[in-house]
Amino acid sequence: MNELIRLLSYMIGIAAFLGLNLAYLGWVERKGAGHFQRRTGPKEVGPYGLLQPLADGLKLMSKQLIIPANADKALYMCAPILIMVPAVLLFVAIPFGEHLVPREFNFGLIMMFAFASVGGLSILIGGWGSGNKYSLIAGARAVSQNVAYEIPMLLTAINIVMITGSMDLNEIIRQQGSYFWNWNIFRLDKSVLMPVSFLVFFICSLAETNRTPFDMGECEGELVAGYHTEYGGMGFGLFMMAEYANLVIGCSLTTILFLGGWQSPIGIWPGPHWFLLKMYFLVWCFVWIRWTYPRTTFWGLLNLSWKYLIPFSLVNLLLTALFIKVF
């Protein structure tokens, strides 16, 4: 019975955390965009525009749901739900604190990648189901990008698995000590290229979440609005929210693998607050990059993955294996 109450409270907690994040990361992004471009961003609704997400939500939910005549109705309706489900589900495995984890899986890392890869299919289904050639092109682009960047991301994550000897996310954090030089990013004794691995992982998560400079799936100049062109109201809202959910998950995963999760950088008070601090710092970096760099070209994007990141990750993997064997 205790277990049941624990699970139930975690479910409510995750739903609340997720809802808050999905609403307010949108606000953070718009505020950030505004200030980077020397504007103020949203400021009319509530103090500092803080009620803007609620107003947006109300607007999106009260809109009429229009299904385009050309669309494949079943797939069109499925896609926004399908893209949201794996994103929400993954929060079950994230260890926010040493004891603040809904469920500890000993295959947590592989689970992250497994469910994240389902997201690509739902983008494809959404792009196809819309019955619009721009959506279709955007869907194909987004997925080829996801597939391309999944490989170096996995290869880099394998480094961590080799060093740690575990796929349990909480165990990976536990093995990184309580000072910042024990974090995987600075563990030069395990592999001299660890900071570069972190960079590769960061770039890959940038591409996996379809964020500028890698948002080829929704480049407005060429493809109207990408794979969610035909979606209005909450359908569009779900695509947007899934993007932020994936953003939070990507940043959490980077925090767990490289930045020591809930471990404290200065040796005192380890706990969920450090996790959130690091995670939100990474989220802020994502926003920062998005509004600083222009979009790349599609071939440039694929070349970066196939010609540079993947060979580099393979060499890096060999190097890590060598380091583990020698030292």
Partner: peptide
Amino acid sequence: PFVAMMELLIYVGAVCVTIAFAIML
């Protein structure tokens, strides 16, 4: 669980996506 996750990662995430690509192209 490991086989289950691999089933998702490989079959849903890779095989289905590849087939869908082939159909679209």
